[in-house]
Design a protein around this nucleic acid. Structure first.
Lengths: 154, 154
DNA sequence: ATAAAGTCTATAATACTAGTAGACTTTAGT
DNA sequence: ACTAAAGTCTACTAGTATTATAGACTTTAT
């Protein structure tokens, strides 16, 4: 039940982008280098990850001087589930309960397989969280933790 | 978020053992070979898995002629979480929210890390299911599905 | 032009997965 | 005692996934 480093880094980067208010609206983009430094992620590895997210339509980018990345949609419309699936594949712990990538798992009778029933519950519990938590939700929650700790934003 | 084949096979085998009523109380053990055939699992691979579960104290065995495996405790006292952890390690999707195997994950500030907050929820949701579902629960649920399908037991 | 920035593909080291193999030990029955 | 049935234990292997690193390329502002 593990989130890969790819998934972790990608999610952290997206959350950071959601939590970075563009006070300076003329510079809505953030560079790979800055994300890499602030989140402590290898820049070359992060490049790949952001590119994948871009090709999946979750990020937009601007090339050339003054370029960088920005969310393809409002933070409220991007869920952690979408990001997760792009980077780490299906959420289901076992293929026979996957909605996105169903495949029989090889048990003698899938219809009455007890493991499948339970893993279906697990899948639903995970999906409930990941597909109903947007980047905005995370950014807000983060902010509220910061305030309850008496820290200033950023 | 994937259950390995090891984990899948081990859980299936344990569920099978829990669902096999020892009507013939003089023969409470089931042989590897039989589990392998009924669950369609490579016998050599299954050997390893059952041995691991035995060494973890979840199974007992009897060697020699007429030997085999049986649950170390009543099915109601063995949870899927216990089995899972033996075969697939910690349940938490990321180390920084693991109770059993905590490790910092490398984010700049763990206390306010939004990803960590959400993954903590995911961990709790999974643990809620796996640690509160016993082998007996699964066997009963399986049986009730069988009946609702109009099948006879076994 | 040039430098800043993203794009894309290839490669590599390491670890993990899903087995397979085979020699060994224990035990029941004769 | 012998034998066959059954679990025990360790090593090995082929394939795949993970976590990067490298470098050449393209786009764009100035």
């Amino acid at each position: 039940m593990r989130l890969s480093k790819r998934g972790e880094y990608g999610l952290r980067a997206m959350i950071m982008l959601a939590g970075t208010p563009h006070e300076d609206a003329s510079l809505p983009v953030v560079q790979i280098k800055e994300i890499s430094q602030r989140e402590q992620i290898s820049i070359k590895f992060l490049e790949q990850i952001l590119l994948t997210l871009k090709n999946a339509g979750l990020l937009h980018s601007k090339m050339g001087v003054g370029g960088g990345y920005y969310l393809a949609r409002p933070a409220s419309e991007i869920t952690l589930g979408q990001i997760f699936r792009v980077l780490d594949g299906p959420v289901a712990p076992i293929k026979c309960v996957s909605q996105m990538a169903y495949e029989p798992c090889g048990c003698p009778d899938e219809q009455t397989c007890g493991l499948r029933l339970v893993m279906g519950d697990v899948r639903n519990a995970i999906v409930d969280i990941l597909d109903h938590t947007s980047l905005e939700d995370v950014a807000k929650r983060q902010e509220s933790v910061r305030q309850s700790l008496g820290l200033t934003s950023q």
